[in-house]
Design a binder for these strands. Structure first.
Lengths: 133, 133
DNA sequence: CCTTGAGCTTCCAGTGACTGGAAGCCCTAT
DNA sequence: ATAGGGCTTCCAGTCACTGGAAGCTCAAGG
């Protein structure tokens, strides 16, 4: 398979596939013409990567997950540990975003959004304890 | 004020303050010795930026918000529009993260996390429809 | 007066995970 | 022979910093 077909079948763009080879996540062979020659296993790995990335795992996590996947002597505890750590990072991000959301939605609700300059959003950002508009 | 004092009082590190000057968010004067000389208004702007960044606004949003803040002919609708757009971006991110969280937590729960290699997390990533471990 | 150390300066490079674009080779069809 | 699309490499840009190196300035202590 050439890169275009693998891209279509894995859903990962050619640019990204080349990047993944660059950083050593995959090692496709080469045809005589210099084109990358992908086998089914490469495609499988790319699909794996696509799913792992879709779950928000970092590239480095993906690298480890992929090596565990290929390691028959792995212990599921190793995989679970990575996933749990990632899960708590996600929880942390969600909490941060919710806090932003909370403050911001109050400010948006309080803002008249009209032609006048008075604005509680700018009031808050400028450090006022309370503001109207 | 020198940069160190402004950093302490605004909570923004010197490196970041220099960066903000670099990209034109602030324009501190200079002392004869070449040091940046910050006035209260610069400090105020930096605090404004700190709060806006804490709410997750992008630097470009901050640039616009700051210019609106200084524009007495602004309309609060302009500010509100930016905030609403940002709010919906936050909602979008939260939704994405929640979806990841959902899938991931199920997988983590299903994984025994022991010394055996079988793992539903890797199963899912490798494309299996169901898996045990 | 000299030294020491902290604080300031600039500039360059790296982060994460791609993404865009340029220049140029390869392959197939007409 | 040519036109196009796909492939190659390499370089640069994204976002918002952050780290580090080399070097100047300043205040305090001896």
């Amino acid at each position: 398979m050439n890169i275009g077909e693998v891209a279509d079948r894995s859903g990962i763009p050619p640019k990204t596939i080349r990047y993944y080879e660059d950083i050593g996540l995959i090692r496709p062979q080469r045809s005589d013409n210099g084109y990358r020659a992908f086998r089914e296993t490469d495609l499988h790995k790319l699909a794996f990567l696509g799913r792992a990335r879709a779950l928000g795992f970092s590239i480095e996590d993906c690298r480890v997950l992929l090596s565990l996947y290929e390691d028959e002597t792995r212990e599921s505890a190793q995989v679970k540990a990575i996933a749990e750590e990632h899960l708590s990072a996600i929880d942390h991000k969600i909490a941060q975003l919710r806090e932003m959301r909370e403050t911001l939605s109050h400010l948006v609700d309080a803002c008249h959004g009209d032609h006048r300059p008075d604005c509680p959003i700018l009031g808050e950002l400028s450090g006022a304890l309370a503001s109207q508009g």
